[in-house]
Each structure stands twice: as structure tokens, then as C-alpha cells.
Design a protein around this nucleic acid. Sequence first.
DNA 1: CTAGCCCACCGCCAGA
DNA 2: CATCTGGCGGTGGGCT
Length: 323
Amino acid sequence: VLATPSAQSLEVAGPVEIFATAVYKLHEAGRGLSVPYKVTIASCTKRLEIRSWMSGLTIEANCSWSAVKGPVDTLIVAGGMDVWTGSDIPGLLAWIRKISRHARRTASVCTGAFMLAEAGLLDGKRVTTHWYFSQKLQQDYPKLSVDPEPLFIRDGNVVTSAGVTSGIDLALSLVEEDLGSDIALRVARALVLFIRRSGGQSQFSTALAFQNSSRLPLRELPIWILENLGSDLGVEALAARVAMSPRNFSRNFVNEFATTPAKFVERLRVDTAKRLLAESDKSLEEIAFECGFGSLDTMNRSFLRDTAKLPAKFRRRAKARES
DNA sequence: CTAGCCCACCGCCAGA
DNA sequence: CATCTGGCGGTGGGCT
């Protein structure tokens, strides 16, 4: 995580906490010794102190950018409007370009998009940033296509996110990509997040969504689904659970999670099955039953849709990778 | 692989 | 007037 000298603490700490919690949850779920994330906070200047221009809260970076050794899997730039003075700009930009070229993915939080844009990494891409700065970003860098609406946008291997806390949503989506939606859900629950706001959700409506969320019946539903994969998770049953009509439930669900109920349930089933395949020696039938697939045949079909691979093959691959 | 069945999804409309 | 809710029926895709 590359942080500018006056980045808000949340921009930096949000993603960091997400990744750290993911590591913890993974261990809790009993997965081997693998540590999926190792986070380094790098400062944009020689000084290591990251001091929020809003609150004055400070975070101590692990090192300066120039001291980062070794390859970087995911580069996240947090904050960004304030670097331009008093540091080695050309060197920093060159470093960003170099790291990004070899990284699996590059991301920005809030105005971090400006730094990526200056480095030329966003040319021709669809991006977003804090709504207050989206117009300026578009004007300063006409080659970009700036969309001020969504919480985060992914274009190729570059992800940009909106205001400060959307960095948390972004990080969560990266965790989901890496470790599956079940782990992502556990992280979200551990941090009592509004469960998995989708990237497409408008920045402007989230405040309202949050106000209502305390009584939103859908908020806890993903967790319940995850923990009851074996039960009847049809639309009618789910709707009854949250005391809504089926029709209305479907509508609200799509608005909230940007997927239809059935697709959502299927993804959780497949992801959980993947985990069980990789980590346990349970039989395929057993796993299919546990995850709520009606039959092994059904699980096979779901896998073919999802990964174009049958469960048995997936397990062989996963086990082979392990040893 | 097929046939029949079921269910999710969505558009439309009416009422709150 | 705008937004939300609930019911109905067609359709297509997945399951048995």
C-alpha cells in the first residue's frame, strides 16, 4: 500500500485491516500454513509518518517507496493529491510504473487515482475516484473515462475506488477474488461491514443505504445463507425468512447485491465446495450434500459453469499445488 | 441424450 | 407525484 504523506488514515488502514482479517479468518477456517497476504505500507516520501490532513491521526509506514524490495502482487495507492511537492516525483512515478507492470493488479483508493493517472497507467480506462474530484480528474487527464457513480470500477487489472471507505469495499472484492466469497463474507462479518456492497452501487446513495441498513432485513442474509447452505435456499424460502413477498424480495436482493438470489446462492455453494475439495478428504457426494447441491450431478454442472472443470479435477489440481 | 417438469427471473400493472 | 410493494403470467434455462 503506497500512501501519500497526508492520506486519511482510513484510506490506508481500511484495506490493510481487510487483508489482515482475511489472513486471520483463513487460519480460523483451518486452512494450512499458507499466508495469502503480506502487507507493506510504503510512504511516498522519505518521511515515514502518514498524517491525515483531516484529523491529524498518524500512521507509521513500514518504509519509503524506494526501499521496497522484491516483487509486489497488488499495488494499492491511497490518497494522492498532496505528493507533488518536495519529493522525487519522476522517480516515484517511474517506480509506480515499474511495480505495476509486474504486479498482478494495481488499485487506487480515493484520489490515489490521480497518481496512477499521472503515471499513465489509467489511459483509456474506465475509472472512478472520490465524487468531489471526479470532474477534475477527467479534466486533467482527458484520456480517462471517469465515472463518478460506482464504489469501484475494475478495468483489466486496474481497479479504482471512490471515496475513503470504498477502499474497504475494494479490498474486500480483491479478497473475494483471491479466496472465494465465503472467506470474504466471514471477513465482512468479523468487521461488521455492510455485507459486500457491490461495485456498481452509487456513491451517492450509500449514505442513505447505510442509514436504512440497521433495519434492512437483507443485511444479515448472506451470512445466514453461508451457514445454512444445506437448507432450502429457493426464492420463496428466503423471502419468507426475511418476511417479504417473493417478488419484492427478488427485486430488493438484486438492488442490494447486484446479483439474483439464485446466482448468489450458487456462487456461495461453489466457493464453499471448492474450499472443502481443497482442504478436506470428504467424498464428492458428501461435499455436494453439505453445500446444498441436490445431487453430485448438480454440483458437477455448477462447476462446469463456474470453472469449466469438474470437482474431481479441481481437487487434484488443488492438492497437487499444495504439495 | 431426451423429454417433461419446475423454478427463477422479469416485465407489467395495480394498490399503498 | 414518486417510490415501494405484491401479484400474475410468460419464458427460458436447469434439473430429474
